[in-house]
Write a protein that binds this DNA or RNA. Sequence first.
DNA 1: CTCTCGCCACATGTATACATTTCAGTGACT
DNA 2: AGTCACTGAAATGTATACATGTGGCGAGAG
Lengths: 206, 206
Amino acid sequence: MTSTKAERVRRAVLADIVSGALAPGTPLDEVTLAAQHEVSRTPVREALRRLQSDGLLEVGPRRRLLVVDVSPEHRRELTTLRVALEGAAAAAGCERRDEDDLDGLELLLIKQERAAQAGDAEIFLRLDEEFHLTLAGAARMPTLSRMLGQLGAFVRIGRLGEETSAAHMKALVSEHTELVELLRARRASRLRAALATHIERTAPRG
Amino acid sequence: MTSTKAERVRRAVLADIVSGALAPGTPLDEVTLAAQHEVSRTPVREALRRLQSDGLLEVGPRRRLLVVDVSPEHRRELTTLRVALEGAAAAAGCERRDEDDLDGLELLLIKQERAAQAGDAEIFLRLDEEFHLTLAGAARMPTLSRMLGQLGAFVRIGRLGEETSAAHMKALVSEHTELVELLRARRASRLRAALATHIERTAPRG
DNA sequence: CTCTCGCCACATGTATACATTTCAGTGACT
DNA sequence: AGTCACTGAAATGTATACATGTGGCGAGAG
C-alpha cells in the first residue's frame, strides 16, 4: 500500500471541504464516510481527528464534527495572518534563497501565465497557492511553512464562490513576477511591502 | 464522564512532552501508553494522531511516532514566528481591547509578581505563557490564538533546561507591566516594538 | 569473515462488536 | 399551558481481535 487508508480518507475529505462539495456547517457522519470510501470507521475517525486538529472541523451538537465556516471577519483575519507570516518569510527568504528557489518560482510563473492565458481559474488558484508556499519556503522555516499550509485550506474555503477573470489572473502573474525579482535582488523591505499589498488586493472582500 | 479518554490521554502525553518526562526522540509505544493510562489502544491512537497534527510528533522508522526535537535553528524560528504573530495581534489588539482584557492582564501581573517573589519558576513560566496568550487574545483573532497555542508547546520544549532566577523573573514582570500600559494607551507601534524586544530577550539562546 | 537472503517478531493499521453519551420527543404532573 | 423526568434511537466512544508490513537477525553461501 502506498499509504494508509486513514491518510487517503483524510486527503479525500479535505479535498471535498476545500472544493465546496462539503459545505460549511455540514455534519460529517462516520459510518457514511466509511461506506463512501469503502473502509471501516477506524481510519475515518483518524482522518477526522487530524482535520479537527487542523481546525477544519469543529464539534457541534451531539459531539458531531461540522465543517467550519469562514466568516467575513475570519477572512480578514486570514489576510492579516498571511501578511504577517508570509511577510516574515519573505524577509528571511531574501537572506537564504538560492538559485533553486528562483528557478522553481520562475517555472511556476510560466505555468501561471499559461493558466491565465487559458482562463483556467481552478488550475490558476492551485498554482497561486503553490507559488506563495514556494516563496515562503525560501525562508527555510518549516514550522512557518506548516502554518501557511494550514491557512491555505481556510483560504480556499473562503475563496469558494470567487470568480476570477483572465485579466485579473494576468495582473496577478505580473505582481508575482515583480515579487520574484525583489527576492532575487534581496530587497527585503520592498518585497515585504509589495507582498502585503498583493495579499490584501487578492482578498478584498470583507 | 467529564471528557473523553482520548482527550485525557492527549493532555497527559502533552504534559509529559512539555515537561521533559518524554525526551525529544523518544518513540511512543501505543500499547505501553495504553497500559500506563489504563485504556485500550484506540483512545491512545487518537491522542497521538492529534499530537502528530499539532507537529509535536514525527514519524520515524517503522512508522513509529517520535517526540520532536527542538533544535537551535528551530528555536530561532519560533522566536521569529512569535514576533510576527504576537506583533500582529498586539497591533490589532490596540484597536479592539476592552476593559476586561486589561483587567485580566493586570490580574496576571499580580500573580506573576507573586510567583517571582516566591521564586517559583514553574508557575512563573505557565503564567508567562498565559500572559502572552491573553495579550494576543485582545486581538479577537481565533485562528491566530490557535496558532500561538500550538507554538506554545514548542516553546516550552525549547525552554526545558532553562533556569530562571528571581531577578530575571522580576525584570520580565516589569516588561509585562509596560506592555499592558502600551496596550491600555493603544500605542500600537510602540507596543509592537516593545513586544518584539521582549520576546527576543526571553529566548536569546541560539 | 562478510555479505546476502529470507524468516520472524513486533509495532502499527484495520475491522468489528460492544458501551456510552446525548438530545429530542413524549407523557404525566403541577 | 408549561415543565420536568424518562425513554429510546442514533451517533460517537471504546475495547478487542485480526491483518499487514517493516526491519532486525541469523543461517547459509561466497
